[in-house]
Design a binder for these strands. Structure first.
Lengths: 137, 137
DNA sequence: CCTATTTCCTTGTAGTATAATAGGTTGTAT
DNA sequence: ATACAACCTATTATACTACAAGGAAATAGG
């Protein structure tokens, strides 16, 4: 289950990709268009700025803007940065020490195969794809 | 992220499928073999019994046993029963009323495609597959 | 320089879920 | 009768989610 953090992040990135005017777009505008709490959105955008997916500018005329072209962002990147990890099971998370039962675990190959499939799926979807309307994948 | 509830459930079902002796296998035996807390496992097995994936028998010589042959259980079935839902986003959960933004949501098709893929993956893996050692899917 | 704007930063918080634990009750075989 | 083992009803520590509040710092226009 993907939390609102990751989902909102994607929606906001798509929103910014849609507004293809140059210049900065303020948070309040995005929040009201996407119907997301401003204060909560702040937290999400902070992550995206920190990770250089967005540029933020303070003060009058400030706001947020993309740092690359929409085709250069993948859903995978946005989701993993905001969600922390998309690993399905704890023993496959990046920081997970990997449980001691791994060698004899009969379900592990299934989880590995699943995680690979998830990666393939989201890493082949770009912001541009989403803006142009994904019909089927 | 799949919680321990679903993961333990799968491991226990695989464990039971492996012990192909007929008769009932007590919880304590499964718990120690799988290194899972007995009390927590009770909760999980209760769900599986209630949903008729397992038969439980009390008293001496009692325990748990499968109600079908391993090839007749899918990972999907076991996971959805114990996890509640595998829907990736709230707006696609079975009881979810579906959010008002659906028609204009550019990310929704991506989530739908993903959920379909997840279903296809887990519904094609049976307990028998897991027991025989899944190498690649 | 002043002021309005808007991001950035820190802290708090209600609600919910997870992963258990504790202790008792009912049913079953010998 | 008794040992065994599932079943049932609570309780709990911990953590995460999805916010909300209030202020500090930066920026543009007048």
């Amino acid at each position: 289950m993907i939390s609102t953090r990751g989902r909102y992040a994607l929606r906001v990135m798509v929103d910014l990709a849609q507004q293809n005017r140059d210049g900065y777009i303020p948070l309040g505008e995005i929040a009201s268009r996407q119907e997301i709490s401003e204060k909560y959105l702040e937290i999400i955008l902070k992550i995206l700025v920190k990770e250089k997916l967005l540029k933020g500018l303070r003060g009058k005329g400030g706001g947020y803007k993309l740092t690359r072209s929409p085709s250069e962002y993948t859903a995978w990147e946005i989701l993993t940065l905001t969600e922390g990890t998309l690993a399905t099971v704890a023993c496959l998370a990046q920081d997970g020490e990997g449980c001691a039962r791994s060698p004899k675990c009969l379900t592990l190959p299934m989880w590995k195969g699943f995680d690979k499939m998830v990666y393939e799926y989201f890493s082949h979807i770009t912001l541009e794809d989403l803006v142009h309307g994904l019909t089927m994948v």
